[in-house]
């Protein structure tokens, strides 16, 4: 058997770690930057402050981890949603390329943006 070559265990591990960090971190960030600040419920943090927070290597490392794992979480779930929800398993190859390829591209972009802050 070629089970040791199968990428499924690794992809599932990325999916579930991504699901966990997304559940823990995304709600508060989305709530603040997507809803609270735009609606003026709290005064928007100054650019200088956020720049300083973002300049901390630890912040950038955490944000990169969040982006990368969350993207792999999406890739895995979306792949199976297309397989089962829309019965598109016959297009498995392009779907896999779209999903995981998209996640890899996203990781590269995230790394590029976070390194050049």
């Amino acid at each position: 058997m070629n089970r040791r070559r199968s990428p499924e265990p690794l992809l599932w591990m990325l999916f579930s770690s991504g699901g966990m960090v997304a559940a823990l971190m995304v709600p508060i960030l989305l709530f603040l930057f997507g809803i609270v600040f735009p609606l003026g419920l709290l005064s928007t943090p100054s650019h200088a402050h956020l720049y300083a927070v973002l300049h901390n290597p630890l912040t950038r490392l955490v944000l990169f981890g969040l982006c990368a794992l969350a993207l792999f979480h999406w890739a895995h779930r979306f792949r199976y949603t297309l397989y089962d929800g829309l019965q598109l398993k016959r297009y498995a190859v392009p779907i896999v390329v779209l999903c995981y390829g998209g996640a890899v591209v996203g990781c590269v972009i995230a790394a590029g943006l976070l390194l050049t802050v």
């Binding site: 089970r3 040791r4 199968s6 265990p9 690794l10 599932w12 591990m13 579930s16």
Partner: peptide, 13 residues
């Protein structure tokens, strides 16, 4: 079992 199998595969890697 997914958790068990995935942990085992990653250890083997």
């Amino acid at each position: 079992y997914k958790l068990t199998a995935a942990t085992q595969s990653i250890k083997e890697l």
